[in-house]
Amino acid sequence: MTSSERAVATTENGMSRAILEISGLHHRFVHNGDSRLVLHDLSLAVRRGELVCLIGRSGCGKSTLLKIVAGFLTPAAGECRLDGHLISRPGPDRCVVFQEDALFPWLTVRENIGFGLTGRQWPRVKLDREVERFLDLVGLGEYGEHLPRTLSGGMKQRVALARVLIREPQILLMDEPFGALDAQAREEMQELLLRLVRQRQQTILFVTHDVQEAVVIADRVLLLDPGSGAIREEMQVGLDRPRDRNDVRFHACCARLHQWLRV
């Protein structure tokens, strides 16, 4: 059984438990009359509570796929379903943490985190308490009144994480969220993310090109192949958590992913 056959088998077997189902997705970019195929008959499924990493060389369409799931882009063909519902536009059941700074610069950290709750007719006290809770969860208790421009890159991504977690999305979409951070901050954020999401069984589709990052956080890693525009490889990361970056098996997983990317 090849790994791509296995990918399909997992999808079919796990159908009942899958929260995100993508099938037969096609997408092409038209640029100056040039049409380039990015996604070609791509299918994948993410189970409830699962943390799936999508890796691939830059330009392979990982971000495009994420944007389609988020509802920012409409695919040329195929469909995405979340919990059985067809995805057609953005919604708070699918929140994104972007790579670039997407906080509102005219709002304080506290207001940014509470932004997604403004539509709810909650009493002020309840709203404040909820925002305070998430402020503490991401370790920014003292920075509530700060403006985003005064924060470091890592702190900004903490705010970005808090403002989407507070909406309790069905699936969290992360588009190389720690790609712009230095190594130290990146590891801290990976740990924070795992600490926050494991206990709440948060489903995550995480795009990265960092092999180590994928092995540290993922339950399952998928390779998106730029040539065929589909998922070509799949690996279950069977390592115990918390994962030891110096472990031999950890290195073996990384080596395998590196191998994928080289082919």
Partner: peptide, 28 residues
């Protein structure tokens, strides 16, 4: 920045509310 409208949409802000919550302050 288009990303602010995307962020607003995914956080459940309607287009109408987005005028006051995003467009106006961003263009200020």
């Amino acid at each position: 920045a288009p990303i602010w409208f995307q962020a607003g949409a995914m956080l459940g802000i309607s287009r109408l509310k987005g005028i006051f919550a995003i467009l106006l302050p961003a263009a200020m």
